[in-house]
């Protein structure tokens, strides 16, 4: 590889051990990489394993879950082998993270100022006064005009959009090289969503930060990401550039998703629905995990799971139709 990669996930498997010896293969052999400064989206429906993938990268998987196999190379170092203590130096400092629900991610008993300066003092080893100055700058950057006053406010005093902006300020406070954004705008109204995504995009350009965007919203993917991975049943089923995905989708699941999406541009009498529902992670069908919902299903689909194959440079699909 000529270009340097920032994050290289190789063969990641995260399993959950359920009661009665059942194993939920929430993430089952995921490969992808993120280059410095690019936005890569991980898209899928609930239960596809996209959030577990992001939590695995941060090593925030608790019992009964476990990273079974694979490597998570961040700047060439394998995070899977890191101890808890080493991870505290990575989280918040080299990898920032924002979550869907900023009210549960922020600590309700500390002021916003307190929560930003805490991160700065811990990771950057700066004095309290310096941290406060930097925190005010950060809040102004993410669009708080009265940043000095916001410093003294508690999370409950802010609206949903403001909380998410405060989360972004905390996440970027230590100039991370990678920002993981897990459904950052799902709980927000559409006008506020536009504000937040705009700020994220601006920060990304300003600090040359890479973004791993986890979302179920294909519109958000189309507008903000450069490359995209579609996940289904704990695996990547299609991986390509954003343009390719929307203009030239290959996998029947991707096609199904796009057709089931109502849009402002097209007018249809009925939406193209995918029959059935996402299987639970402990009861995937044998063979291709999409086989029981797929309109193009063949005999061999039920026998063995297809591999992710390259159909054209930079476009990988997990489907027998393209082998």
């Amino acid at each position: 590889m000529t270009e340097k990669t920032l994050l290289d996930v190789k063969g990641l498997k995260t399993y959950f051990y359920l009661e009665g010896k059942k194993v939920a293969k929430a993430v089952d052999g995921v490969h992808f990489s993120v280059k410095p400064g690019e936005t890569v989206a991980l898209v899928g429906e609930s239960g596809s394993g996209k959030s577990i993938t992001s939590l695995s990268i941060m090593k925030l998987i608790g019992k009964p879950g476990k990273i079974e196999e694979g490597q998570i190379l961040f700047n060439g170092k394998d995070l899977v082998k890191f101890s808890d203590k080493q991870m505290t130096q990575v989280r918040g400092r080299e990898i920032g993270m924002i979550f869907q629900e900023p009210m549960t991610a922020l600590n309700p008993v500390f002021t916003i100022g307190n929560q930003i300066t805490e991160t700065l003092i811990r990771h950057k080893k700066v004095s309290k006064a310096e941290a406060e100055k930097k925190a005010i700058d950060l809040l102004k950057l993410v669009g708080f005009p009265r940043a000095e006053e916001t410093m003294k406010e508690y999370p409950h005093q802010l609206s949903g959009g403001m909380r998410q902006r405060a989360m972004i300020a905390i996440a970027i406070s230590c100039d991370p090289k990678l920002l993981i954004a897990d459904e950052p705008t799902t709980a927000l109204d559409v006008t506020i969503q536009a504000q937040i995504l705009d700020i994220m995009d601006e920060m990304k350009k300003k600090f040359n930060m890479a973004v791993l965007l986890i979302t179920h919203d294909l519109g958000v993917v189309a507008e903000y990401a450069e490359r995209v991975m579609v996940m289904y049943g704990g695996q990547i089923v299609e991986q390509t550039t954003v343009e390719n995905l929307f203009l030239n989708p290959k996998h029947p699941y991707t096609n199904g998703l796009l057709e089931s999406l109502p849009s402002l541009e097209k007018e249809v009498d009925r939406l193209g629905a995918i029959k059935g529902m996402v299987p639970a992670a402990h009861e995937f069908p044998a063979g291709c995990r999409f086989s029981d919902r797929c309109p193009h299903v063949m005999d061999k689909c039920k026998a063995a799971n297809p591999e992710l194959v390259t159909v054209e440079p930079g476009h990988n699909v997990r489907c027998y139709l393209y082998e």
Partner: peptide, 25 residues
């Protein structure tokens, strides 16, 4: 107008011009 412009579009060839509203409800 602002609401419609803020809806993320899957049309990658024709990007809509966004009207970003200031502030909250």
């Amino acid at each position: 107008e602002a609401l419609l412009s803020a809806v993320p579009s899957t049309d990658v060839l024709n990007k809509r011009e966004k009207i970003i509203l200031k502030g909250d409800l």
